[in-house]
Design a protein around this nucleic acid. Structure first.
Length: 288
DNA sequence: CACTTGACCTGTCCGC
DNA sequence: TGCGGACAGGTCAAGT
């Protein structure tokens, strides 16, 4: 689902709501959504306090007072929805957006001592929640290989260029989606930033001119910063921790806008297939 | 090795 | 209305 801006939006929402809460019980439906599938783990979780909510790439980490963490990947359709009870009674506007929880896509339910609840919903079951020692997170294969955070100030255009140079024969869209190159870019922001930089997604990474790389670098950052500002992008399955939708799609220039005019030149936006993914381009602004 | 494709799941939408 | 197939905001394993 969710790419960096959506996961960051969820992280911020959770940070403001669940820090200091004490877990009272944990339930789950399918083992694949909660691989630590035994009662002792759940017993172990009970009574622990949430001390931090962090993000790396598209992965969320909920740190507990026990020096363990819940590590969460939402993949394509995962959601984390907090129900504070005291504010979200029946009839709250969020009810009409996400329905009443839990529902049939609820995979993990985290209950807190104060009566509030955090639901992990995931229609396609690709996502997961797993418990591990906080200190071991950095040893996960994904964490060892994932690229730099694109919005951090120390991530420079020079560094971006150097990382692109490692994949000269792959098309630029595949390279942007490659999490070992740069963290957190997914299908939406790959398309949006390539349009912004006027680069065709099928261009080989090695064919990009230095000025194109520099423009792409700044487009990735500005598009993602804008999206975080707007609370992320929402489709029918994405909601933030409030159960509300983000508004970035109101600002999207090409993503899911096939058949509509390019905001830059008015040419009809096309949808093609690149790197196995639906890809949106302006055929005039982005020459192959 | 570098790069691309298929598989993992469930649900929805579109064309016949 | 029913049915088949394509497709969906990600990642990893297997294939070329």
């Amino acid at each position: 689902m969710p790419e960096l801006p959506e996961v960051e939006t969820v992280r911020r929402g959770l940070h403001d709501r669940i820090i200091g809460k004490v877990i009272s019980s944990v339930t789950h439906d399918t083992p694949r959504s909660f691989p630590n599938d035994d009662s002792s783990v759940k017993e172990f979780l009970t009574g622990s306090t949430i001390i931090a909510v962090r993000r790396r790439a598209k992965v969320l980490m909920i740190d507990l007072s026990t020096a363990y963490s819940l590590v969460i990947h939402l993949k394509m359709t995962g959601q984390l929805v907090y129900d504070g009870k005291e504010r979200f009674g029946a009839g709250h506007p969020s009810d009409s957006l996400v329905g009443t929880l839990p529902d049939r896509s609820t995979r993990v339910t985290l209950s807190f001592e104060d009566g509030s609840v955090l639901y992990f919903n995931d229609q396609r079951k690709f996502g997961w929640v797993r418990l591990m020692p906080t200190a071991n997170i950095s040893d996960l294969p994904f964490m060892r290989t994932v690229g730099p955070e694109p919005l951090e100030p120390w991530f420079t255009a020079t560094q971006f260029a150097a990382r692109l140079e490692r994949h000269p024969k792959a098309n630029i869209k595949a390279t942007l989606l490659n999490q070992t190159v740069i963290a957190g870019v997914g299908n939406i922001y790959a398309d949006e930033s390539l349009w912004g930089a006027m680069i065709h997604p099928k261009r080989l990474t090695g064919s990009l001119k230095p000025e194109e790389v520099e423009l792409l670098y700044s487009e990735i950052r500005s598009v993602m910063n804008l999206s975080i500002d707007k609370g992320g992008s929402s489709n029918h399955t994405y909601v933030n921790a409030d159960g509300k939708k983000g508004s970035y799609m109101d600002f999207a220039r090409v993503f899911r806008r096939q058949g509509l005019p390019c905001p830059r030149c008015g040419t009809v936006i096309e949808k093609i297939r690149v790197a196995g993914r639906g890809t949106h381009i302006c055929p005039v602004c982005q020459q192959e």
